[in-house]
Nucleic acid binder design. Structure first.
Lengths: 160, 160
DNA sequence: CGTAAGTATGTACGTCCTTCATAGTAAGCA
DNA sequence: TGCTTACTATGAAGGACGTACATACTTACG
């Protein structure tokens, strides 16, 4: 290994580590939903939709996931083709399209949950509940930090 | 949020959280190496090569990264096209190709390190050194867990 | 020697994600 | 009211990562 200043080394290593960890999770997830053919990005959208009864607009889904709205449009396309999701016009804004989960989508999530939880439990084997809790919180803090940074960068980028 | 059994909920949420976190890191990394045009997968290979003076074979790189060897071939292609990496024949096995980092590659890594560390420091703002340490360790444990699981799955998959 | 296994790579493909361009709609202001 | 500006979703095009399968070459083992 190359040499670093103390704290920066740790941050650098942690960055690399979280990348491996995410790859690991992704791989297990793929294994869990194997055959039922839903891919990572689409799954994110579906899970987000499953947490509410109201529809969510494409733009809001994009902002929530931190990706472009064009991307979400595509993911919703595939989910809709599979019948897991449905587009309905927004009664309050005719530009907007609300996406809601269908009963088939709910069923898919239910079927996905059990094996996914088992896989996750296997992945987090050896973690104490406290480990799990702090780990989750640190991850979320990382995500919010990034959101804040992205906003900041966007601001200083748009007014040089 | 939907309802879960206690521990499984946490594992499920932690899985989602690490995905966001990794996306966050990835985005900052992209921002850091902007213009210098190296992408995530290639960067992983380059970093791995920068940690040793000897060449590493395509297959070993693939196993270390947990990806297919075909994929590594492609990544090495682009790195070689940019002059950051070089293929040399393995003197001990004429099937194998060793990949080594060039001086230009070393220089790239050096140039990348500083802004990357700054970005990481910004990302991990608010983390105590202990947070950072446990976070990194938990991530690595996750990765090793996945490796073990993958091996296990491969074994039971190949002898049904 | 001959067969089996390992190596890198060609071909083909799927998914994620992006940017730019476009048509429809909303909102603010003369 | 009409005009301009901004926002919405989407079409088109493309880059990058990753996979599986087939192939040619080399090694190792019987």
């Amino acid at each position: 290994m190359t040499r670093f200043a103390n704290g920066d080394l740790l941050a650098f290593e942690a960055g690399a580590a979280v990348r491996s960890a995410s790859h690991a999770i992704e791989r297990m997830r793929a294994h869990g939903s194997e055959g039922r053919g839903i891919s990572a990005g689409a799954l994110d959208v579906l899970i987000r939709l499953s947490t509410t009864d109201r529809g969510i607009s494409i733009g809001d889904l994009a902002r929530a996931g931190g990706v472009s709205s064009r991307n979400v449009t595509g993911l919703v396309d595939t989910l809709e083709r599979d019948g897991l999701v449905r587009r309905v016009p927004d009664p309050e804004d005719r530009r907007s399209v609300l996406v809601e989960i269908t009963p088939a989508g709910q069923a898919w999530i239910e079927a996905f949950r059990k094996p996914s939880q088992l896989a996750m439990r296997a992945m987090f084997q050896g973690f104490t509940p406290e480990d799990l809790l702090t780990f989750r919180d640190l991850c979320l803090r990382l995500a919010t930090n990034q959101h804040r940074l992205a906003d900041h960068l966007r601001q200083i980028g748009s007014q040089p």
